[in-house]
Amino acid sequence: MAQNQSASGGRKPLLEARGIKKVFGTGAGEITVLKGVDVDLLPGELTLLMGPSGSGKTTLLSILGCILSATTGTLSIAGEEAVGLDAEGLADLRRRNIGFVFQQYNLFPTMTAHENVLIALDVRGVPLPDPKASARTALEEVGLSHRIDTFPKKLSGGEKQRVAIARSLAGAPAVILADEPTAALDSENGKAVMELLATVSKDPTRAVLAVTHDHRTLKYADRIILIEDGIISSDERPKDNPAALDHDPASHAH
């Protein structure tokens, strides 16, 4: 973490997790998935979280996304503490501060691209002068101005993921968490989606964390965290240490 603190350049983390431990089950069936993880997400950065299957990255993503509660540890998002909140409290925190991008897009199949974004605005309860125009703008910004009134089944995988990104941005959350955003996409669409996430992450009011197995995403990362057996085994910034890209942390991921 010392490296991160020096790399923060005085920026205040938008997400701070300390000593995150997660235990599933009890007694003989007890499994410790996370063994004390510290993570900071800085504004203006795209962080990749990588690791082999069963390393705890999805559990960590769920905890950082306030979907799952940690057994021990502290978590604050945009300055708000998540520890001790009940399900509704966590939902409220997610609603105001976190945008999600899912591997399978999780779009509402009965809603157009435009309506999918409007749902996120409604859920977040963000009052806008013209919500429809704002949703349209969000879709234009992800390059889907021509697909606004299209239903998900008529969209390609890449287009669906771009709608999901536009949806995650609705309401301008401080943190975007992406779960394997390119896993269901071909290389061309995967590249477009990563470029988009990289662009999105440059907003100085936002931090982006993507869980990924895809080595093609490495070049977009400002920072790469590798998690193994429930602990962070490496946390590097390719710009500070270009060799980090050479050993390809994704190779640990399978």
Binding site: P127, L128, P129, A172
Partner: peptide, 14 residues
């Protein structure tokens, strides 16, 4: 991408 945050601060409807 910052357009929504700005618009959100102006208040309006849902």
């Amino acid at each position: 991408m910052a357009s929504q945050a700005n618009a959100g601060a102006q208040g309006g409807k849902i």
